[in-house]
Design a protein around this nucleic acid. Structure first.
Lengths: 355, 355
DNA sequence: TAATTTTGAGAAAAGGTTTTTTCTCTTGAC
DNA sequence: GTCAAGAGAAAAAACCTTTTCTCAAAATTA
């Protein structure tokens, strides 16, 4: 029996004895004792650092697995000044935009061992402040601010924090990093698709002109729609889709052969109103939505062809960026527009028309 | 100049000098130096523990505020073995159920300084395992498992964890604490409301019989509906609502004067189908939904009267419970059913009928 | 063979806080 | 004038891990 092994034996007895007192977490101390090495050697073995015999390293790793040892993140963080934690701040209570963003962030960071605090502040500055302070107390490595509108700030000041901040789908401060979708490109995608299908008279029914996204999409529509009509601004609701159809069909003049809607809810209202009028979608008219909100786009009859803003990808990039900043890697400030993609379902009649 | 003040002066100079190197966080050490007291005194002053002069305590607190000192959660957690952090595990990607639960949890725990990790595992056992391990690494004080169905387990084993686990809107292990809504009571609420409005012939159109909630709601329907018809089981989709109306109106026999639907989507399908048939809601027939999913219930024409499962309250209670367990307070295991409430909108014609 | 390098592994410090223990005064009583 | 009590505050230990430093032994070179 070598000295090392004897020591290991002695320690494991000792530990076994102590262990009866309570079911404490196994620490690196226990691991070192069980493996018959010093704490430092155990640490180095696990982290693939330092110098030691190959056999020692393997043995420590094996025993660590057997014991189910997992290093205490707090002790580790105390030293490294990293918590491997970030905060996701949002004022989107429905989760329409935040959940996909969250999924992307989480997906990107999980591999790096980073977990995400979700903090929903519902346009309440006091609540926002409280959440931010809680996050700072928890030593988050960074914060992602997310919203439901790219031209509105969150009701909380993140400008002088000592942790990196990235904005995703919400307006950021001038010198910050901001991710948003490319609304103009998305709108072009939709309108060009309609034109490719042979549609020539395209109407744009959308949300309030006060929204930046609305203006961007409208500008793109005007740019590529060919035969242009005044953009119909309204609200983000099915009822507006209904009303818009009502207006179009009661006014004099020709009827459109396509309607490009500002979001899926409006599109759904439009489709329902058209059906009630006996206008066939997609045979008589094509309708395209925006957002790809499954629950709306998928349940519409027929299911909506719509523009997807790839929010998960947006979240992924925001996550990687805030991580890079937390690790001190240089990140260029500015607004990054991410491309949208078109999701083809049946409201434009692609299959029929392409044959 | 007293000794204490001289010391404070010396230290603050020293600190000022050191501070030029980098913008480190102010620690309790800095605070103690600035206040001219020892670290332990500073700690006790802030935590209202120990003995010291009233003046000293106040001075330390004042200086702490001035310096913007916030204790390092990791150092604190290392000692107290509490991270003031819990994990919320969910497989509900839409967030239909999880977001309200999350809001409640967060709301309940924010006052206690506890933050929430949201971990979305999409029915992927490997992903679930990874998230759970990440949470354990981060030393969460507890875990809330949440789902989209009360009779299904999350695809991850939480039974032998050394942290407390509470189940919310998902099935738990036998000896665990589980929160769920009282589906039977909710269904009774709906049907009793219809009867109170004078409806006598009530049909129940609902989701798949395999769902426990469906069976509970159906049983309650049979119990209080008076004139009973066979429950119409189907799927959770608008299309099923359409089809059900089609079936009811094409079969021989009298037509119902009320339809109690298993969820809001089905109810919406029903309402739309009725309108298309020229049957007036709520004049000719009352429709009531289940879930109170704003985006569906509110956009239906007319807006749906529906049963709200009070998921936020459910989350709140789950949060407080897991906190109690984390603090070692005794918690009785078992299934806790929380009452639902009826949200009256216009699909039952309450106003008209009550006059 | 003596001197030098390499290898393997332990000791110790650091990180920021809380808690327990210890120390130093002051004050009042005998 | 000595003691005891007690207040006020400092010192030290503890929490768990990583990292740097040190040291002994083995291997290599001169």
């Amino acid at each position: 029996m070598t000295s090392r092994l004897r020591k290991a034996f002695f320690f494991s007895l000792l530990e076994a004895k102590l262990d009866t007192s309570g079911n404490k977490r196994t620490t690196i101390h226990d691991l070192a004792a069980a493996a018959g090495v010093s704490i430092s050697t155990a640490s180095k073995a696990l982290n693939n650092t330092g110098r030691m015999g190959d056999e020692t390293r393997k043995r420590v790793k094996r025993i660590a697995t057997e014991m189910g040892f997992r290093p205490n993140a707090m002790a580790r963080g105390l030293l490294s000044k990293r918590s491997f934690t970030i905060g996701l701040l949002t004022n989107d209570t429905y989760g329409r935009f935040t959940l996909p963003v969250m999924a992307g962030v989480s997906d990107a960071l999980l591999d790096h061992g980073v977990s995400v605090f979700l903090c929903a502040i519902e346009d309440d500055p006091a609540l926002g402040q409280t959440h931010v302070e809680a996050m700072l107390d928890k030593q988050v490595d960074g914060i992602i601010a997310s919203g439901k509108r790219v031209d509105k700030r969150l009701p909380v000041d993140l400008s002088n924090l000592q942790v990196p901040v990235v904005y995703a789908f919400t307006e950021g401060t001038p010198d910050s990093v901001t991710f948003r979708s490319d609304d103009a490109q998305g709108a072009r995608l939709a309108v060009e698709w309609l034109r490719k299908l042979g549609r020539r008279h395209i109407v744009h029914v959308t949300g309030p002109e006060a929204f930046f996204s609305v203006r961007e999409r409208a500008a793109a529509y005007r740019e590529v729609a060919g035969e242009i009509e005044p953009v119909m601004y309204g609200i983000w609701a099915e009822s507006w889709g209904h009303e818009a159809v009502q207006r179009i069909w009661t006014r004099p003049g020709g009827k459109p052969d396509a309607i490009f809607c500002g979001n899926d809810q409006i599109a759904r209202g439009v489709v329902d109103a058209l059906r009630e009028r006996g206008v066939k979608v997609p045979q008589d008219i094509s309708v395209v939505g925006f957002d790809n909100w499954e629950i709306v786009a998928g349940q519409t009859r027929p299911p909506l062809t719509t523009v997807d803003m790839c929010l998960k990808e947006l979240g992924r990039q925001a996550g990687l960026t805030v991580l890079a900043m937390a690790e001190g890697r240089p990140v260029e400030p500015g607004v990054r527009k991410l491309p949208c993609r078109l999701v083809v379902r049946q409201s434009c009649g692609a299959e029929n028309l392409e044959e």
